[in-house]
Structures are given as structure tokens and as C-alpha cells.
Amino acid sequence: MPEMIVCFKEVVDERELKVNPKTQELMTEGITRKISDFDLNAIEEAIRIKEMHGGRATGVIVGLPECKPSIKKALSMGLDRACLLSDPAFAGSDTLTVAAILAAAIRKLGPFDMILCGEASTDGFSAQLGPSLAERLDLPQITAASQVTIEGNQVVAERSLDDGIEVVEASFPVLLSVTKEINKPRLATLKQILAASKKEVLEWKAADLGLSTDAVGLQGSPIVLKRVAAFRMERKNIRLEGTLAEAAERAIRELLREGVL
């Protein structure tokens, strides 16, 4: 009967992103927000584990009070309760600072066996939250898990790495970050949506977590975001000339430079 924590976050739906044509900056205001894709896989995996082994799954999210529909969605899918960490002081936190906030909340929630999170978020895709959180809580970590099984009080997981599959095991407590391949997140039925209204949602601020407001948010984060600029979407129409070998080499280098290979 594992006690599980699922970390999830809200992101903008990248399909709706628009560019300010004057500044070339990305406009993220007023765009639909959703639970980050891989986090849905983490939620689904916790629910599946619960269906097989019992236990409890608590969702934890750092977000604005406006993220409540996403919390409700997670509860409708089957999480038992949720914990919203919301404070104006959290605004502008970098990933590792978000991990610090989550760590404080998870300590406050009490003993647990597993933490599940998505391997990466669809907005930043930095894949840093899991490892950073594991470090904060001094836990073993299994990142990029594409299959998870519980055997008594230990977890066996397949990790999808660059060069192959690695099967690893670790005893509770442990942190797992899951890939998109691990499962297909379910859609809640209307009945489950209605039932979710009755589930508990804890709401904590920085002070509840014993966090100083200097240690979080913009001023508390070691990473400073200076600017987000759009990629120009028009096609470049560049012909790669020269011998075939030269053209091929240039193509690979350009694609690597574009960050698409």
C-alpha cells in the first residue's frame, strides 16, 4: 500500500502560442493552460499503482490559484487529494527553486514511499525537477522510467536511455520520473468529475512551508530569465550547395545548431 506523491505542473498549451510581431517576444497571456503532458503520465501511473496495490496518491502543484481546474482534472482522474502551493512570492522561481518549494511541502505532508513526476515539462523541457527534488530529499532517483512495477517495498523500473534500456531497482522511498511511453493517461468520466469536487485540496503558502520569501521566486532563484524570443516560423529556403558530401555535412551541422537533431 504505497504512499505516493505526484508532482505536476500547469503549462501553456503551446499550440496556442502567439508572437508579438513587433518585439518577436512570445505572448503567453490568455492562453489555455493545461497539465504538462508527462505529468499526466505520472498521475496515471500513480493511479494504476493504486489500483493494483492500494495506497494513496497525493498531487502536489506549485501554481497560481487559477490552476484549480487542472487540480480538479487530476483529482477526477483518480488522485486522492491535492496540495496547491501558491504564493505571489513564488512567481519567477526557476526549476531548482520549484524543487525546493515542493520538497518543503512533501516534508510537511509526512512519510511517503514514492514520488512520481514527469520526466520533463512541455514548456521548458529541462528534465531537472525530478533529480533536483531527489537531491533535496536525499532520495535515490530513477529518471526516464518507461515501465514501473512494485515488488514488496521496492520499485523495479525500465529506464529509456540514449543507448538502450536499463532495468533498475530501488527500495522505498524513491523518486521516479516517467516518460510519455509509460502509459496512456485516462480521461475522467462525468461521474468522476463530480466526485472530485468532494476531495481534499490543501493550500499552502511560503510561510506555511517555513520558506523565507527571499529564498524563492525571482530573487531567490539562481537562474535569471532574461528574455523569451520566438523562433521565426517562415521557412528559410536555404539551398545547401557543394558536393553531396559537403551538402550532407552542412545539413547535419545546421540541424544540430537548430537543436532539432
Binding site: S221, L225, A230
Partner: peptide, 13 residues
């Protein structure tokens, strides 16, 4: 960032 839609510029404290 944003699935290849944008480029973020960051620095460190």
C-alpha cells in the same frame, strides 16, 4: 523552449 517555438536567454546569479 515551448516545443521548439521559442528561444529563452538565461543568466546566473
Amino acid at each position: 523552449v515551448y516545443s521548439g517555438n521559442a528561444l529563452a536567454m538565461l543568466t546566473y546569479r
